[in-house]
Design a protein around this nucleic acid. Structure first.
Lengths: 123, 123
DNA sequence: TCCAACCCTGCCGCCAATGGCAAGGTCAAG
DNA sequence: CTTGACCTTGCCATTGGCGGCAGGGTTGGA
């Protein structure tokens, strides 16, 4: 499977895939002409990477999940150390979520106060 | 109040304050020697800006709140249009939170599966 | 034969929010 | 007068996740 196919299959760009490889998240063999050659597994792997990225993790965060990127993330069994680090990331995530949720709530409250003036110029 | 004082009072650096000014989030007069001169209000304003930033908003997001940055965010009454846009941001925020929460949950689930092997090499 | 569609490497650009440095001006104290 | 703490502008560096281009190679088909 060449890079274009993998890109198409995963929704990533070839550029992004090379980038993932460069940062060590995926790997490939090369065919005689120098083209990257990917295993079928790569599809799942890249899918998982993109899933984590889409959720706000960084490539560096994702690195932590290397051991379990090839299967279903939800049922993954990962290497011990990886999971330890993952726990830290979990805390970070929780922190981010909490902070953003707090802002969201405040913003929502502010909007509520504003939400019922008598004459509204819009709509 | 000069930039150093404001920086000290808010926990921001002078560099950051100039940046906020450059992007239009705060303003200042100048004294005869060219130094920036800030009003007392600036403390609250910068505090609010940093609060929003800390919660994961961008400076651009913060711009939306310009009308209510000088008071308590929780009880703020903002200009109509500003609040409209704010609603959109709210949706964005909710999206981000939801995405990150989802990952968090999956990660947590993965950790749970892993959390009770018989012999673990680490402590 | 020659084009089009792929692939390669390498490097510069971009956004965001500063940090950091250079190369100054200003001001109060000693 | 000098020192040192403050201030000024301006521009380059950084991190992250690519986009995009240049300048190539290769392959398949009309």
């Amino acid at each position: 499977m060449r890079i274009g196919e993998l890109a198409h299959a995963t929704g990533a760009t070839a550029r992004a895939l090379r980038h993932y490889e460069q940062t060590g998240l995926i790997s490939s063999e090369r065919t005689s002409n120098g083209y990257r050659n990917y295993h079928e597994r790569a599809i799942v792997r890249v899918g998982n990477i993109r899933y984590l990225l889409a959720a706000g993790l960084t490539l560096d965060d994702v690195r932590v999940f290397l051991p379990c990127l090839d299967g279903d993330l939800a049922t993954a069994r990962a290497s011990d150390k990886g999971m330890r680090v993952a726990l830290e990331r979990l805390a970070v995530l929780n922190g981010r979520i909490a902070a953003q949720t707090e802002v969201r709530d405040r913003l929502e409250a502010a909007l509520r106060l504003r939400a019922r003036p008598s004459s509204d110029t819009g709509h």
